[in-house]
Write a protein that binds this DNA or RNA. Structure first.
Length: 224
DNA sequence: GCGACAG
DNA sequence: ATCTTGTCGC
């Protein structure tokens, strides 16, 4: 009988439930993000999903869906708040992305089930989590990566790799990359780096989705 | 009681 | 996440 630790080590590279996803020829990458506002005491949110041509870096498609948000935010439970709207937006896509990138963590999570991992089981696609700030799990610290583009340090404890602190730009704070599902960390890091431009420390998928949610909110919010 | 805490 | 102007720096 395998110990939990042994199973966890398999999950960290997501090899247990791997369907036949081929990440050697990625064509479309999706970026997902949400923005919030409130009206008359009620909370609303808009989710934008941007599809990027992985080769040319051109925008292929953009969808945005807004709705009321009823679940509050609690650290560790982000998916329960954001996933409903994300799934509503995902079904509106005309193109099928080969992989989704999220604003938040995947395996780097108290239950190894951050929003990127959680979402994968509904989207049935490989996923990557890219967080802007470190989610401190039970005392696990991260080592600051070298100040060089592409430099990274693994976030690990007990021989278990939770993710990586990645320097996407020089002289800029690192981002935190972790496997969502059906992908290994090295591939997740490579894809993330391939989508970073001079505009942001975040990959353009996440960055463009973020900009779009702000634009949508401006259009949707009532400001008499 | 105090500090930590993805978005 | 969000409320928010100017401002220091590459």
């Amino acid at each position: 009988m395998e110990t939990f630790k042994e199973e966890q080590k398999k999950w960290q590279s997501q090899i247990v439930l791997t369907p036949n996803f081929d990440l050697t020829e990625i064509k479309i990458v999706a970026g997902v993000d949400l923005a919030y506002w409130s009206e008359e005491g009620a909370d609303f949110g808009v989710c934008s999903i941007i599809l990027i041509n992985y080769v040319t870096k051109e925008v292929i498609e953009s969808v945005s869906v807004a709705d009321r948000i009823t679940v509050p935010y609690h650290p560790g439970y982000l998916a329960f708040r954001e996933l409903p709207l994300i799934l509503k937006a995902a079904v509106c896509l005309k193109h099928q992305p080969d992989i989704y990138m999220f604003d938040g963590n995947g395996f780097l999570h108290p239950l190894n089930m951050g929003i990127a991992t959680h979402a994968s089981f509904y989207l049935n696609k490989p996923t990557i989590g890219v967080a802007k700030t470190f989610f401190n799990l039970k005392g696990i610290e991260f080592v600051m990566p070298a100040n060089k583009i592409g430099g990274y340090t693994l976030i690990e404890a007990d021989g278990l790799v939770y993710g990586a602190s990645l320097r996407t730009r020089e002289n800029v704070k690192p981002v935190f990359v972790s496997c969502g599902n059906w992908i290994d960390l090295e591939t997740a890091l490579a894809i993330t780096m391939a989508l970073v431009t001079k505009d942001s420390r975040l990959p353009m998928t996440t960055r463009l989705a973020d900009l779009e949610t702000h634009k949508q909110r401006k259009l949707l919010k009532n400001t008499p």
